[in-house]
Design a protein around this nucleic acid. Structure first.
Length: 829
RNA sequence: GCCCGAGUGGCGGAAUUGGCAGACGCAGCGGACUUAAAAUCCGCGGCCGAAAGGCGUUGCGGGUUCGACUCCCGCCUCGGGUACCA
């Protein structure tokens, strides 16, 4: 209506505002944290750091827009907020890209970092730019090596030969966690097995703590992530049982979670690819030896993907050897089969086909007996082909007969223990963390191999072991580390005896880098230690961690493990690094993940150029709950820009002076303002950022109305409301908010203006709408005083015309009164 | 197969402890302003009805309750995780 003349200068110009404020903020550095003398209480808000593969993309834009809300929120609430950023800069993609372009991986990486860094600054998150780190800097990875040596000294880092996951494309080994559905996590190539001697970190020593400490995270981490970690660690309890084997001196131990079914064992299986299988086969007749050799060959040739296929028929070879069941001295035929895994438990099992589906499938394939020992009241598995794993009374089980599962387990375990034939035992799915990589662009493993001293750690004062220049090295994947070609770098005297020795040529898994980066941020320049222990005490744990759910197992499990190791080393007090975790969703386009090959790629730089930084950030945060995916086809950055312009214009309409006391302002508007502040506050505190924005939009609508058709632009309540809009908006749209703040007559920075304080008196409504239901159906609304008594409200409702008409003479059976908001009248006949 | 999670208008989504379903926004429609358009501002938005009013409604079927998007039981659909872990 009464729009003021909009001269060109009065038009909202997102790009101009960005250019105007960025240099000013660079100068004012409002987000420096941990300055000496700063006695604000501390908060640590952490975003997962980016991998520098090209420029920032839509996914980054979402993640960092979301992470910035709690960071800026706590600043407004008066906290000294540590909100750092850095680059996860080592790794295969950088190296592969470098090989493709014939470039130095270091140069390629640092150029990408420079690009991302510039984009990140324009994106205007509240980062403390004094704390930036790159994991590929020697000043950083030196401490990876330092930690490795500490673990090596304690036996937590060790080398062992094993059948490892091998990616034929990346030409390197992979940790279990990096094999996804039989495919390489990075390049989707089918993973094969290879026998290699590799470095491991003994994460299995921490399995119980990693599992049990999750209790502390309950409610503060997404349930989904906790469940995934629990499943991954996969603790099970049961017993180990020793079986004598005919013609073998030592008994063979099996692990079972069902020792109660011991009397139901009818055969025995060893993993085909285990040493034990080879040994047992060697003692078998020649024909069996040939069959076995053929079978193992066939198993080896089966790819992991084929092994994963469901309903694969059971295969195996009878070794013509026998194990003796310790509880009843029965002779059990021993088979080699691939459904038993060499590296879980002991690689050998007792097979109880009646009560285990896999054993039953095998028994039916090989025509082996099935003996029921638990009466579950289900049909006979031998006939149905369906094993009965449930509970029930034990039968055919000698001393266990009549007992239920739990009793029988306790009983038989004690019995075996007494006879020295077994013991209670736990097992884990989790394996030790394989960290060797046969690639160039990573942290060199700080070990020197000496012919006489063996594995010798590089002394601390010789760290870091820096990467040799990539010039002249063959970086192409060939199955052994490129570092082996750096002859000058390779040969060193043994630190222990001085004789000629060689460096280890492998580099570390890059997940080592990200396992402790949140600690390095605390003192990124420190060169006498990985981090300042005092600082760690002040800042840890991270109050809010924000990142994608893709890291639910890998990164988060490793970082938790590192934290516990550092705790044991006396370096950190906490046992858990991340107190709260928020998993933001992904940005999709037309229902699927964006990719070049799909042709549905939306370029962040295009979106920013068209709509401005603030509009993109607002769109990301307003689209829905932060953990949900955003389909870019469903949202409207243009709508966001429109809203920002509308909010921005309000600032130009305010005619009262800065500092005007709002006390005498329009009461209706003031009530809206204070309700919005309170509700936005609560919404942000519970990570419902989209709701907080909806409230601010309500306030903007209310102020617009007040200016145009109500209190008018000079009313103090209008200023109060628009200032609240500016401050609240600064959490998602910092440029617009800062410009509004200036137009309102204030000095920068709005980010430090403080969270608007709610006047509780203004939250109390002078009247509330009471809904009156008859038989649960809404029939009338009454305006009543908030303090109305139950009796008064009942009378008022019953006396109402509409209510009486609806009752139409029927009797009133009950009246439920929830003063002051609801009355429900239940009618009789 | 097993383990989680989710189903609300044309769309994204909202709804303290069970208490006005659909906040806020997008798209749409109508109006004001304008010579006109853009921009802006206002309004509408499940169905029937001119209106008053009435009826319906949170994936489906049951249950608990004065009252259920919310709690319980049984299904259906979709999404995610996992994959012979003895």
């Amino acid at each position: 209506m009464s729009q003021p003349d909009s001269s060109p200068a009065e038009r909202y110009d997102a790009q101009a505002i960005q250019e105007k404020w960025l240099p000013i903020w660079d100068e004012l550095t409002p987000f420096r944290s941990g300055q000496p003398g700063d006695d604000r209480p501390k908060k640590y808000v952490l975003d997962m750091f980016p991998y520098p593969s090209g420029d920032l993309h839509m996914g980054h834009a979402e993640a960092y827009a979301i992470g910035d809300v709690p960071a800026r929120y706590w600043v407004l609430k008066g906290f000294d907020v540590l909100h750092p950023i850095g680059w996860d800069a080592f790794g295969l993609p950088a190296e592969n890209a470098a090989i493709k372009r014939g470039e130095d991986p270091a140069r390629w990486t640092y150029e990408n970092i420079a690009t991302q860094r510039a984009s990140m600054r324009r994106y205007a998150c509240s980062f403390d730019w004094d704390r930036v780190l790159n994991t590929c800097d020697p000043e950083y990875y030196r401490w990876n090596q330092w930690f490795f040596v500490r673990m090596f000294e304690r036996g937590l880092a060790y080398r062992k030969p094993s059948n490892v996951n091998w990616c034929p494309n990346c030409q390197t080994v992979l940790a279990n966690e990096q094999v996804v559905g039989g495919l390489c996590e990075r390049c989707d190539t089918a993973v094969t097995k290879k026998k290699l001697t590799q470095w491991y970190l003994r994460i299995t020593d921490y399995a119980d703590r990693l599992l049990d400490d999750m209790e502390q995270l309950e409610g503060n981490w997404p349930d989904k992530v906790l469940t995934m970690q629990r499943n991954w660690i996969g603790r099970s309890t049961g017993a180990e049982v020793n079986f004598a084997v005919e013609g073998r001196e030592q008994p063979v131990t099996v692990y079972t979670t069902r020792p109660d079914t011991l009397f139901g064992a009818t055969f025995f299986v060893v993993a085909a690819d285990s040493d034990l299988a080879a040994e047992l086969a060697a003692g078998a007749p020649a024909l069996v030896q040939r069959q076995f050799a053929e079978y193992v060959e066939q198993v080896r040739a089966t790819s992991d993907i084929d092994r994963l296929s469901t309903e694969r028929p059971k295969t195996g070879v009878f070794l013509q050897r026998y194990a003796i069941n310790p509880v009843n001295d029965e002779r059990l035929p021993i088979f080699a089969a691939d459904y038993v895994l060499a590296d879980y438990g002991t690689g050998a099992i007792m097979a109880v086909p009646a009560h285990d589906q896999r054993d039953l499938d095998f028994a039916r394939a090989f025509d082996l007996p099935v003996r029921v020992v638990v009466d579950t009241e289900a049909d006979d598995p031998a006939i149905t082909g369906v094993a009965t794993p449930g509970d029930g009374a034990l039968v055919n089980s000698g001393p266990l007969d009549g007992m239920a599962k739990a009793d029988a387990i306790a009983h038989i375990t004690a019995l075996l223990e007494a006879q020295g034939q077994g013991a209670a035992a736990k097992n884990y799915r989790l394996r030790d963390w394989l960290i060797s990589r046969q690639r160039y662009w990573g942290t060199p493993i700080p070990i020197i191999h000496c012919p006489s001293c063996g594995e010798v750690a590089v002394p601390d004062d010789q760290l870091p072991v820096t990467l040799p220049d990539s010039q002249g090295l063959d970086l192409s994947p060939k199955g052994t580390s490129p570092l082996g070609g750096a002859t000058h770098w390779l040969s060193v005297p043994c630190p222990s005896c001085g004789s000629p020795a060689q460096r280890d040529t492998d580099t570390m898994d890059t997940f080592v880098d990200s396992s402790w980066y949140f600690l390095r941020y605390l003192s990124p320049q420190l060169d006498s230690a990985p981090f300042d222990v005092q600082q760690a005490q002040q800042w840890l744990p991270v109050d809010q961690y924000v990142g994608g759910v893709t890291h639910a197992i890998l990164h988060l499990l490793y970082a938790r493990f590192f934290t516990k190791v550092l705790h044991d080393l006396g370096l950190v007090e906490v046992q858990e690094p991340f107190a709260r975790l928020l998993n933001q969703g992904m940005v999709l386009m037309d229902g699927s993940a964006m990719s070049k090959s799909r042709g549905n790629l939306v370029r962040l730089s295009d979106e920013l150029a068209e709509h401005g930084v603030d509009a993109i950030r607002l769109t990301m945060v307003f689209a829905g709950p932060p953990e949900d995916d955003i389909d870019w086809a469903d949202v409207s950055p243009a709508g966001s820009a429109k809203f920002l312009a509308r909010a921005w214009r309000l600032a130009g309409d305010v005619t009262s002076a800065p500092g005007t006391d709002p006390a005498n302002g329009d009461l209706t508007l003031r009530r809206v303002t204070h309700r919005v502040i309170a509700e936005a506050d609560a919404a942000i505190a519970s990570s419902r950022f989209n709701v907080a924005i909806a409230r601010v939009m309500e306030l903007v609508n209310a102020v617009r109305k007040a200016i145009d058709t109500g209190a008018g632009p000079a009313d103090p309540a209008v200023r109060e409301a628009v200032e609240a809009v500016a401050v609240l908006l600064s959490m998602v749209a910092p440029y617009t908010a800062e410009d509004m703040w200036q137009r309102l007559g204030h000095q920068p920075c709005v980010a430090l203006a403080g969270f608007p304080v709610v006047d509780p008196a203004l939250l109390v409504q002078e009247s509330v709408t009471c809904v009156v239901q008859v038989d649960g159906k809404l029939r009338q609304r009454l305006e009543v005083s908030p303090g109305i008594s139950a009796d008064d409200l009942r009378e008022l409702a019953l006396a109402d015309d509409v209510v009486q008409r609806t009752l139409a003479g029927r009797s009133v059976r009950t009246v439920v009164v929830r003063e002051p908001k609801l009355v429900n009248i239940v009618a009789g006949d």
